[in-house]
Amino acid sequence: MAISRDDIEKVALLARIQVDDAQAAALEQDLGNILSLVDQLQAADTTGVEPMAHPLDAVQRLRPDEVTEGNQRERFQAIAPATEDGLYLVPKVIE
């Protein structure tokens, strides 16, 4: 499957990565190469094959419902880019 410039821009928006024109052109080339590598998959006959979730087909353990975490806001927010009154600050969220 070939990838177009338009695809690159769409997927860059989905992934929230700013891409300038020069980068988009390079990405079109690189992603095109990667996707043709990946397209070998289409040759494989996978009829009836269950997709693999965990190599050992292990199942999920469940944790007892207990509060084990205390307040560590000071420590966690010491490494935050911008906080005020205990809140993380971001440019205005418009719904």
Binding site: M1, I3, D7, K10, V11, L14, L31, L35, V38, L41, Q42, A44, T46, V49, E50, P51, M52, A53
Partner: peptide, 20 residues
């Protein structure tokens, strides 16, 4: 891209099958 609408089965699901 591989996960985006319309490509999931052809890429991700297929890859997980090949993995098996």
């Amino acid at each position: 891209y591989a996960l985006s609408a319309g490509y999931y089965d052809a890429y991700y699901r297929k890859a997980q099958q090949v993995r098996r």
